Simulated scan of single mutants.
Amino acid sequence: MSAARLLNEILSLPPDERRALMRKVAASLGDPEPETSDATNIEDAWYAEIQQRRQRLEAGESSLIPWGEVRAELLADDR
Rank of each mutant, 00 (worst) to 15 (best):
M1D: 14
S2W: 00
A3R: 05
A4H: 03
A4P: 02
R5P: 00
R5Q: 12
R5M: 07
R5Y: 04
I10Y: 13
I10L: 10
L11Y: 04
S12A: 15
D16S: 08
E17K: 10
R18H: 04
A20C: 02
A20G: 06
M22R: 15
M22D: 13
M22Q: 14
M22A: 14
R23A: 11
V25D: 08
A26G: 02
A26K: 12
A27Q: 10
A27L: 04
S28P: 03
L29E: 10
L29H: 06
D31C: 11
P32H: 11
E33T: 08
E35W: 01
T36F: 05
A39I: 06
N41V: 02
I42W: 05
I42P: 04
I42F: 06
E43M: 10
E43Y: 05
E43K: 01
D44H: 03
D44T: 10
W46N: 12
Y47W: 12
Y47E: 15
A48G: 06
A48L: 07
A48V: 09
R53Y: 07
G60S: 07
G60A: 06
E61P: 02
S62D: 15
S62N: 13
L64P: 05
I65D: 08
I65A: 11
W67S: 12
W67N: 12
G68Y: 03
E69D: 13
E69H: 01
E69C: 00
V70Q: 07
V70K: 02
V70I: 07
A72H: 03
A72F: 01
E73D: 11
L74V: 01
L74Y: 03
L74Q: 11
L74C: 05
L75S: 07
L75M: 07
R79S: 11
